[in-house]
Design a protein around this nucleic acid. Structure first.
Lengths: 346, 346
DNA sequence: GTGAAAGCGCTAACAA
DNA sequence: TTGTTAGCGCTTTCAC
């Protein structure tokens, strides 16, 4: 019998209510019991401020009611919106959310998947920076259900949700052409990632479908970031003053490009139209507000969470792979529509 | 003895290595054992891909190596930078981070503290929107160490880290006066919070210390957000065209104010200087880049994490309460210095 | 309807 | 050095 100190346990409650620990457990879990027993147990529990030990429960039940979300960077708005949606789905279901920032280190990603074997989490949503063979191997042996946000080889037996950055880029470049732009530059992020390659494909596709020939001179590859975007834009504009628009691989780059334009006294969009990607809060922060392609981070987060809980609750349904369609948010950085902000007056 | 299916346990390893489960545990935890025993256990564990069950470990040890961070809003950049710093401190120490978004609901905050009793987390960093008597009561009975990021009554027996929004505001307003501004408007966030009240105090203090008289007409209270900031600025400028500068309670509001200025063709900073607060990425995103007061979110996160782990590892040292000094980041929205972005040329 | 007892997987005290 | 054993706090048979 436990001594008086330490937090109350089923035994403490049982002793106080004058019943067995089995009855305590039953009452607390809403299984059948005589009204009198129920009353006494509940009263004892209330008086002692009893809270069941979640760890013991997990050990017995084999489930922790914890889910893990692993992504490259907590600070990135795209991942933040995923976190928010995942929370929205899982919290009402009583799951806690474990956050893991991998800092884009592949080995760290693999470790997260491997550590599912420690039974500390019921499932994982993984957002890898790049999917390698090692990833596929580790994912195949994962001790718990995993949903990947990103593109997997067709053969993979893992649920996944992917963005369509090819179509997203096509959307952006097509929009610029419809606005009458012809010399469209492209500031891309790291090219050795799946999205990086896909954006390039989309850029070239959109130009070709309009009968234009992509000019490699108008393409710059750089790291993500406002500063990097400004630098890249200056470089492009120094070398090719004829550029009339620029598509950027994310909103930070686009804001940097906008800063560069301002510095050179180029009017946006009259002399340089700018399009970003991700449609984060930053897009609305810029001046003029940035046209931006939303790759559906929020929706991918929501879908991934739904897939994971379905896999957890439900039976062994087949592997799912969904693709989220991109959406273009048109704002002043391409149309020049001078809206009086938040007042609805042109 | 466990059957062949299911993940391997100490017993599985013990059987395979031909030793007892105690030896398995010892070897795996680096306690003494004969070289031959070590080798056999390690080999068996490796062959079976054994990973210790973390839940069982936690039940035995009474510690989960999990920490919880509860804040009002995952999307807010200030909290995001706290998350990042908390991770930076706790991850190397082998703690997992449980994220909890309270959506600024007080009852949810209380529940987080109460749920520490379920033994599922070793400690909590709580970022309450407003500290009520109920908070103090619940905090006093917390089952695990808690560090609060925010202002607590002096009597509280809880570790805490607070920002100094009075001094932060003074910094901003004083800076504007040093820039020669005299009609300084103030767009404040919700006034019924501690920071809201403190900013007001700071605003009035800074004006009075310069011999000026605060004009209530130049103060607007509103919700946070870019749109809200734009609306408030328009309202102020409509009523008081003589305003030459505006201090805003966060960067979103300031960006909104900047948009309003652009819409009215007011040059920043020549005709309207703008100062924000939080010094988030948004400040650098604006054009011109925003001068902003950093209240030290990142540092508060780091300190809170350090306090918590100290409380966890260490003995029962006395209650700590630290205050983080604000810092002003001066940019073009007040100085007008036309820097060629990312090129270092004026 | 209720109680006694087994056991989830692990660590550590105690014996040998 | 090693093995046996007792729990950590809970849920759940299985008898009664």
């Amino acid at each position: 019998m436990p001594t008086s100190d330490g937090p109350p346990t089923v035994e403490t409650i049982a002793a106080r209510a004058g019943v067995s620990i089995a009855s305590v457990s039953r009452v607390l879990n809403g299984h059948g019991a005589r009204p009198n027993t129920v009353r006494r147990v509940e009263q004892a529990a209330a008086e002692l401020g009893y809270v069941p030990n979640g760890v013991a429960r997990s050990l017995k039940g084999g489930r922790t009611r914890q889910l893990t979300f692993a992504m490259p960077d907590v600070g990135n708005p795209a991942y933040v919106s995923m976190v928010r949606q995942i929370q929205a789905v899982t919290k009402p279901l009583g799951y806690r959310l474990l956050l893991h920032s991998t800092d884009a280190v592949a080995e760290d990603e693999l470790d997260v998947v491997r550590s599912l074997a420690d039974r500390t989490s019921d499932g994982l949503i993984l957002c890898p920076i790049r999917v390698t063979d090692a990833h596929m191997e580790v994912l195949a042996r994962a001790a718990r259900p995993v949903v990947v946000i990103g593109s997997l080889p067709g053969t993979a037996a893992v649920d996944s949700v992917r963005a369509d950055s090819v179509s997203g880029t096509v959307l952006a470049v097509r929009h610029l052409m419809e606005c009458g732009r012809r010399r469209i530059a492209f500031i891309n992020g790291p090219a050795d990632t799946v999205p990086g390659r896909n954006r390039l494909i989309g850029y070239e596709t959109a130009l070709r479908e309009a009968g234009a020939v992509p000019d490699p001179e108008l393409i710059v590859t750089t790291d993500f970031g406002i500063e990097a975007g400004a630098r890249a834009a200056h470089r492009l504009l120094d070398a090719h003053p004829g550029i009339d628009s620029v598509f950027c691989a994310n909103d930070q780059l686009a804001l940097g490009a906008a800063h560069a334009a301002h510095d050179r006294d180029l009017r946006i969009p009259e002399e340089l139209a700018v399009v970003g990607m991700d449609d984060s809060e930053l897009a609305r922060a810029g001046h003029p507000a940035l046209t931006s392609v939303d790759l559906g981070s929020a929706e991918r987060g929501r879908i991934a969470a739904e897939m994971l809980v379905a896999r957890l609750d439900g039976g062994r349904h087949e592997v799912r792979c969904e693709t989220v369609a991109p959406r273009l948010s048109v704002r002043e950085s391409t149309t020049g529509a001078r809206t009086r902000t938040a007042a609805g007056v042109s």
